[in-house]
Computed example of a mutant assay.
Amino acid sequence: MADAIDIIRAQWAAAEPDVDTSPAEVVVRVLRIARILQKRSDDVLERLGMTRAEFDILSLLIRAGRPVSPTEICDQLWTSGAGTTKRLHKLTERRLIVRLPNPQDGRSMFAEATEAAREQVVPVLHELTRFEGQLIERLGGSKDSVVDALRTLLAAVEDDRAEPDPRALLRSTALRRPAPGRAAT
C-alpha cells in the first residue's frame, strides 16, 4: 500500500536519481506520524479544556510526586525557561500548582501539583490514553516489534555521536558531480 512518503521518494528518484532517499521510509514517516498524533491528541486535550503545555507540566509534576525545579521541567519537557516560567505563573494563578522555596537556593522555587491538578489531569489522562490505545490497536500483533524498533531508533537519535557533522554533509554535497545536463552550482 503506497503512501505520501512513497510518492515523495519516487519524485526524488526522478529528480535526483543519485540520492538514496531510503532513510525517509522511516524518518519522514515517524515525523509525519508525530505531527498527526500531536494534532489529534491536542484536539482531545482542547475538548477537555486543557492545553498541551498545561497537561505536560502537570503530568510531570504528578508523576514526580515531589516538588520539581523549573530547570528540571525545562530539561524534561524540552521547553524554554521563559515559556516554562509563564506557564508556571498561570498554573499557580489557577491553583493547580503551588510554588515552594528551594531550601538549597533562596533565589529559586520548586513547583508541586495540587490535588485540584490531579483531579483535572487524571480524567484527561484516561481519555488521552484511550484515544492513543485505539490507534495502537491497529498494529495488531506487530505492536511489540514496532515498539522495539522505535526504542532502538530513539536510542540512536538520543546518542549525540549519531548526529552527523553538518560540515561533512556540506563537503559531501559540494563535491558531488552535477547530474548530466545540469550545471554545477
Rank of each mutant, 00 (worst) to 15 (best):
G65Q: 04
T71N: 08
G140W: 06
P67A: 06
T21D: 04
Q11F: 09
R52K: 12
R40C: 02
K86C: 04
D105C: 11
G141L: 05
R99N: 07
D148T: 07
A4F: 13
P164C: 05
I57F: 04
D144K: 15
E132D: 08
A168N: 12
Q134D: 09
D43P: 04
A53N: 06
R107A: 14
A4Y: 08
D42V: 07
R87W: 04
V28Y: 07
W78L: 13
E72N: 03
G83D: 03
S172V: 03
E119T: 07
L96T: 01
V44E: 10
L88S: 00
A64Y: 03
F110T: 00
D165R: 02
L48R: 08
G181L: 09
L128Q: 07
V98M: 10
F110D: 01
F131M: 03
L125R: 14
R118A: 11
A4E: 11
L135G: 14
E158N: 07
L125S: 11
I8D: 03
A183W: 08
G181H: 01
L96D: 02
L48S: 01
H126M: 14
L88Q: 01
V98D: 12
R9T: 05
Q134N: 13
P166F: 05
L154G: 10
E112R: 03
L125K: 02
I62R: 00
P17T: 11
I57T: 07
E93F: 04
A82V: 11
D105I: 09
V19Y: 04
V68M: 03
S41D: 01
T51G: 09
L150K: 02
A155T: 12
T114K: 13
